[in-house]
Amino acid sequence: MTPGATEISGPGDPGLSTTAERRIVIGDAGGAPDKEWVIVARGLTREYDMGGEIVRALRGVDIAIRRNEYVAIMGPSGSGKSTLMNLVGCLDTPTAGEYWLNGMLVSEMNDDELARIRNREIGFVFQTFNLLPRASALHNVELPLVYGGVPATERRKRAAEALDSVGLADRKNHRPNELSGGQRQRVAIARALVNRPSILLADEPTGNLDSTTSAEIMNVFEQLAASGQTVIMVTHEADIAAHAKRVVVLRDGMVESDDRREKFATRMNG
């Protein structure tokens, strides 16, 4: 272990790659994690039954993420990144393992409770934007507040503020097809942020964008992370991952490495 790594990763820090040390943080199954951990997943497993043949997308992932961390998830195509994000984003439930979000055992929740968590705690940004095509930018951003039961006047105000914060104050009434790809993704980010979620998830948010626009969008995430927002992002571009403070690499549904950015960069360079 390098002295630098020891310095950053104190006792219980998940940024350590050996299984023994990781277990200190992750803790024992069934126990609620400490408050500072936004996300703690133990033995997260997701299998798909494809007509008798079992596809094992995730096979026992342990991961713990602290509040305000900026984490990049990498790995080859089909390694289980999206599956992991969907579980972390409460869009999906694990076949086995447990998942704690903000001290709540999400893996045991029913569909309505999950919907509530998605609405209150999670902002999700997709590669394909996933905006409602017939609704204006403002209405798209308003939508989580509609399901959150926020009164109409307040939600309009908050949606406008969120659009303003991603630099789209003058595009409120545009529909997605009247916006560029980068602008669409900004609307999606505004929508993800409007409920002030505890985690912002992004699954290849720049996958459909050209390099200039990608850089702009990455800049937005960078600033959000810098302002204290917990961000978890899937990407397969190393230079994009380089923005993150910590990189988790998946392979074949398992964590291959989980490290601080510095360490990752060293490995890449070396």
């Binding site: 869009l91 309505d112 919907a115 998605r118 609405n119 939508l143």
Partner: peptide, 16 residues
Amino acid sequence: TREIGIRKAIGAKYRD
């Protein structure tokens, strides 16, 4: 279907 998926992803419940 996709619209429904989007709505559910951002927090629409069964009854919504």
